[in-house]
Structure formats: C-alpha cells, structure tokens
C-alpha cells in the first residue's frame, strides 16, 4: 500500500522538459574499427550502439554505452555513422549533439573516450561531465 493512500499526491514530470535537437556525432577511425569488432562479436540482429547520459558522476552526468538491438521506441533518433548504427534518445540529444567517439589504446587502460563540446567540465576519470 502506498503511503499516499487514496490522496495519490501530484505526479511530477520526470525528464519531460528537455529540448530535443537533431543529433550529429562523429566516430574516429580507431573507434569505428573497435566498434565494428564489438558488433561482430555480439549475437543478435540489427545491433546498434546506444549512447546515453545518466545523472551522477563527479561532474553531474555519466556516459553509458551499450550494444543492443535497435530500440523500438519512438523516443530514439537512429543514426548511421560510417556504416555503424547509433541510437540516441531524444532526452539525451542536447547533451550528446556534436560529440566525437574515440578509442584510445594504452598500457595504462584504454577504452572509448567521448569528446563533448557541450561539457563545461569533466572529472579525472574522464567518465563524468557537466
């Protein structure tokens, strides 16, 4: 039973008041090569890279990247970047528009890196931006 009882409270809009922009993003050659390898290793049809921002991290937002089947949700924008399918939710469109996905391979730990022109700040680990 809800603590709100029959009164119900007033439902609050969650994530609805966002500006939607048409996303343009780029993927470096190194990242594209790595992504094609990852996509080839995964089982499934119509696989895409889904890039998301989550609240949290030192600077306010975190990047989240996953390979999954192309989302069947009208809230997504679907892009073809050099033959790689990328999906971005409208809710993330303003924060992710203009990003460049790169891949860095170093002995001290490489991985995908995102350069984001919308970020005013980032944290030491490179996973958080604000």
């Amino acid at each position: 039973m809800s603590i709100l009882g029959d009164g119900g409270g007033i439902s609050l809009p969650m994530g609805d008041n966002v500006q939607v922009v048409e996303v343009i993003l780029t993927i470096t050659d190194a990242a594209a090569e790595r992504l094609r390898a990852v996509l080839a290793e995964e089982a499934g049809e119509d696989l895409v890279l889904i890039i998301t921002t989550l609240s949290g991290g030192c600077s306010g937002h975190l990047y989240d990247m996953q390979v999954a089947e192309r989302p069947d949700d009208s809230g997504f924008q679907h892009l073809d970047v050099d033959g790689i399918g990328v999906s971005v939710h409208n809710r993330d469109s303003e924060r992710l528009n203009g990003i460049q996905v790169d891949y860095v391979d170093t002995l001290m730990g490489g991985g995908f890196k995102i350069e984001n022109p919308n970020a005013d700040r980032g944290c030491g680990c490179g996973k958080s931006f604000g």
Binding site: L4, G7, S11, M14, G15, T52, T53, L54
Partner: peptide
C-alpha cells in the same frame, strides 16, 4: 533536480506529497 536527473533508462516515478502528507 530529480526531473532533470531521470534518464530514459530509469524506472522512477515521483509524486509531490506536500498536500497529502
């Protein structure tokens, strides 16, 4: 802040309970 923080991936609903509680 809560409204801005919720991602499309988050299963979170919020209710203003000021008038109820």
């Amino acid at each position: 802040h809560l409204a801005d923080a919720v991602s499309w991936k988050d299963d979170v609903q919020a209710a203003d309970a000021d008038g109820v509680l």
